[in-house]
């Protein structure tokens, strides 16, 4: 597998970013770029699917922190899904579940946007 991959799928006003590989200080700029591109296109309802992500460090977590305020100000949100327990543990350690909606799978994330 490549070091880090981000695949984007747009459906109506929702955009899903499917992450794979590892997200550290080396690869975090790639995610930053992908989210910035969504914002530049006026797409603020974002689902991040962590299914194939094997590792995350604070550099990866910092990317979400860097965008969330702008996204919410524009009426959007980042909802997260499909985390392995290893990835969830890092989010949980930092108290991120109080800030972000983290759900089991992508369909639930979609319904949270619709609900």
């Amino acid at each position: 597998m490549e070091k880090f991959v981000v695949q984007r799928i747009d459906k109506n006003d929702l955009s899903t970013l499917c992450l794979g590989g590892f997200l550290d200080a080396h690869t975090a700029p790639n995610l930053e770029e992908a989210i910035q591109k969504l914002l530049d296109e006026g797409r603020f309802k974002i689902i991040v699917n962590f299914k194939d992500l094997t590792y995350i460090s604070s550099a990866g977590l910092g990317v979400f922190m860097g965008f969330i305020e702008e996204i919410r100000t524009k009426g959007g949100d980042i909802k997260m899904s499909n985390m392995t327990s290893k990835i969830f543990r890092v989010f949980d350690l930092l108290g991120f579940p109080t800030l972000y909606e983290i759900v089991d799978d992508e369909s639930e994330a979609i319904s949270r946007f619709k609900g």
Partner: peptide
Amino acid sequence: DMKEYLAELKVGGLGIYLMKTL
């Protein structure tokens, strides 16, 4: 302080917190 940190949506400085916690 993570509660304060998250409330203010700060960026960076998480690494040292993780090292101390882990």
